[in-house]
Design a binder for these strands. Structure first.
Lengths: 341, 341
DNA sequence: TTGAAAGCGCTAACAA
DNA sequence: TTGTTAGCGCTTTCAA
């Protein structure tokens, strides 16, 4: 059994600003000023203090600093707790972007998972007031999280888009991207496409649907609602959609995301249906999973880390009182690969 | 452009304990006591205060509370930032366990990513003292993170094992688990096995290797070092190991983890080598990926969420000054599936 | 350029 | 049972 040495609490033996002041025969404010650089101070005393600090490895107490000026130096990262495994890497890369920027400004990330119909995690973060701002990693069509954030008086940005007014949004231009890819497919002579999509309550899926439809229309192909499969949330849904699309003799399966595409490929492989010989496959999201497939899958490529970095930078600016754009659209890339040859 | 309303800082219009005290004509300490329940207080005043609080939606400032009693009510979750996509779900599920327990005790999770040879993230967390304790999500053989934590005077537990003394460890019994699965395979008549493993600097991989060797020995099979492939960090390494194992005519490929197993299966499928007909495959870690494979893969199963929950509970106990076990071993399950029939 | 003092919002001895 | 007071460690006016 191990037990914590009781005379070793967090502040145990830790230097405070008062200790430094006393040791150096100056006042606390002098020390504070030396550290922050705010207010006038002689170069002499400043270096004297700084030297002492370096030598004695003093670390300011962020809590106290926070209390004194109503800041926490934390930002909240709100991420869906029930996203499927294939979506995890996306959020993880986003978070890495957030953390990179946050760290550069000496901010830390407080994480909270939200589940469908369970706002408690988000509410905790807001209520506890341990963050200066919040980044919501994904948006829903009628998003209770966004509503909750709008009510809580706390700066926030969302990664994704939302119909809600006055929300700072960082997103890729999914509509344009999906339209472009779809158009290209049609230009290649593919006239009959199926679109298999997940949860239609996710804004991103709505955008992808719209992009797909726009692309179909722009390509002069009559939109065919019978080959649009929304809300394929389970693998069974996806398989059912795929089966029907195959029966309908579509030439290309366009998958809204990674997970769907992975499932589609798996099924086609299992049934000995060859890509792109028998049928072509494209995806509106790229992942390593798809890229290392044989053949690699034509897809759209976004930069999730960039998304996170931009979101964090924007939030920090906003917290800082600087004006920021209500909507930032990041770019995308169309990756034509072997699956649509 | 959107801009933050400047008269809406974090504390803007927020009620404080002093406001409540004044409104109710009592002292601050009475209010404080009513909330915390510490110290004696009459039921009357207590409900009076609580009612007021409920009605006016008062939320205590956790920062101030923390400063007053040297606590942050945060715990740090240190997770490798460069783990491959296949490992992400494991850490994510762990974290969900951590967060579940943490939330129950009104603790929040501060996240920090660590990369190989980059301790800055961890150091920031320690230095900023914004956490009461830390959970390290993975251990290395000669782990700089553990060393760093040992120096920083902060309670911590690791998920995984470490040779370092005096470290609180929560782990599955990988050695026993891997030994058991290996023994079973041998009992089924498989005499020639290959073991393909990742980074040998990860403690878990060392344990798996040991378990495998123990199992081989217990099964009365002469250990064959030529079919042990360590440090297969890239897909190319894995493929090379697989090729050699196939040339050596092993009967079963035992994969140390998800990612390796996934790559192995992919390669076998691509080359038309059938499982379990031509060769059998087993994995020392189960994932949905492997379970939905055709055929499903024989593997070990652990409960990552349980790992996280136990780690968090242990850490909280430890922070609380209660004695805790230096090492907690969680159980495992052997899942025999079609890949080793 | 520096210091004294008040205050951030809460807790916890100590008194009453 | 309640109030008074001092403090947690830092920032920031205001004076000197």
């Amino acid at each position: 059994m191990v037990q914590l040495n009781p005379n070793n609490p967090l502040d145990g033996g830790k230097l405070t600003i008062a200790d430094i002041a006393e040791a150096l025969g100056v006042s606390k404010s002098t020390v504070s000023r030396s550290i922050s650089g705010k207010g006038r101070i002689s170069e002499d005393t400043r270096t004297k203090v700084l030297d002492f600090i370096a030598e004695h490895d003093y670390k300011p107490n962020q809590l106290a600093r926070g209390l004194a000026n109503s800041k926490t130096y934390n930002i909240g990262w709100i991420v869906p707790g029930d996203s499927d495994n294939d979506a995890l890497p996306f959020f993880q890369r986003c978070m890495m972007g957030v953390e990179e920027i946050a760290a550069a400004f000496d901010y830390d990330i407080l994480i909270s998972l939200v589940f469908d119909n369970d706002l408690s995690g988000l509410q905790r973060v807001i209520n506890n007031r341990k963050v200066d701002g919040i980044i919501l990693a994904r948006t829903l069509l009628d998003d209770p999280n966004v509503k909750c954030l709008l009510e809580g008086e706390i700066p926030f940005v969302v990664i994704g888009s939302t119909p809600e007014k006055g929300v700072i949004q960082i997103d890729n231009d999914h509509v344009a991207a999906c339209k472009e890819l779809t158009s290209i497919l049609i230009l290649k002579g593919i006239r009959k496409l199926a679109f298999i999509c997940g949860n239609s309550n996710h804004v991103v899926n709505q955008s992808r649907l719209k992009g797909f439809m726009d692309g179909v229309e722009a390509g002069g192909v009559k939109p065919d609602n019978s080959n649009i499969y929304m809300d394929c949330d389970t693998d069974e849904d996806i398989e059912r959609a795929l089966d029907e699309a195959l029966r309908n003799k579509v030439q290309c399966i366009v998958c809204a995301d990674d997970h769907i595409c992975y499932t589609v490929i798996n099924n086609l492989n299992r049934d000995g249906i060859s890509i792109p010989g028998d049928i072509k496959v494209a995806s509106f999201y790229n992942s390593i999973l798809l890229d290392r497939n044989q053949p690699p899958i034509t897809s759209l490529q976004y930069d999730p880390k960039e998304l996170g970095m931009t979101a964090c930078r924007t939030l920090l600016d906003y917290i800082d009182g600087q004006p920021v754009n209500e909507k930032v659209m990041l770019s995308y890339e169309v990756m034509l690969k072997g699956s649509t040859l």
